[in-house]
C-alpha cells in the first residue's frame, strides 16, 4: 500500500493505493488518525484501492469515529468497486459518507 496526502481547498485528501491488508493497515491507521487529529476535514480517496480487508476497514472506522468525536467531517471518495463490495459486506456502505468523486464531496460540503 502507498499513501499520499495533499491539501485541496482546505481539506486533507488522503489517497490510498494498492492492498490495504493486515500488513499495511497499521500504516493506514496511523496516517488516517494523524490527519483526523489535525481537526480538519479529511477525504479518503479510495479509487486506487485494489484490496481491502477487515483490518483496513477497521482503520477507516476508527478514523471516522475519531473525526466524529472531534466534530470534523470525514468522507470516503471515489471508492473502487472492490473496496465498495467490502464496505457493503460489512454493512458500512450506509454508515460512511461516500462520494462518487472529489468534486461531489466538495459540492456536498458547500
Amino acid at each position: 500500500m502507498e499513501h499520499l496526502i495533499r491539501e485541496d481547498r482546505g481539506v486533507l485528501v488522503i489517497s490510498l493505493t494498492g492492498d490495504v491488508d493486515l500488513e499495511s493497515s497499521p500504516r493506514a491507521r496511523t496516517v488516517l488518525l494523524e490527519c483526523v487529529g489535525q481537526n480538519r476535514t479529511v477525504f479518503v480517496d479510495m479509487s486506487a484501492i485494489a484490496y481491502i480487508d477487515s483490518s483496513g476497514v477497521a482503520s477507516l472506522v476508527e478514523a471516522f469515529q475519531s473525526a466524529r468525536k472531534g466534530g470534523n467531517r470525514f468522507a470516503l471518495v471515489a471508492v473502487s468497486e472492490v473496496a465498495l463490495r467490502v464496505l457493503q459486506l460489512a454493512r458500512l456502505d450506509r454508515i460512511f459518507p461516500i462520494h462518487a468523486s472529489l468534486n461531489d464531496a466538495f459540492a456536498d460540503d458547500a
Partner: peptide
C-alpha cells in the same frame, strides 16, 4: 454484531457472509 461499528470480529463476519 452488525450494529456495532467497532473493529473486531469483522473478519469472521466476512467469512460467514461470503
Amino acid at each position: 454484531k452488525l450494529d456495532e461499528t467497532r473493529p473486531g470480529g469483522l473478519g469472521t463476519h466476512f467469512m460467514r457472509e461470503i
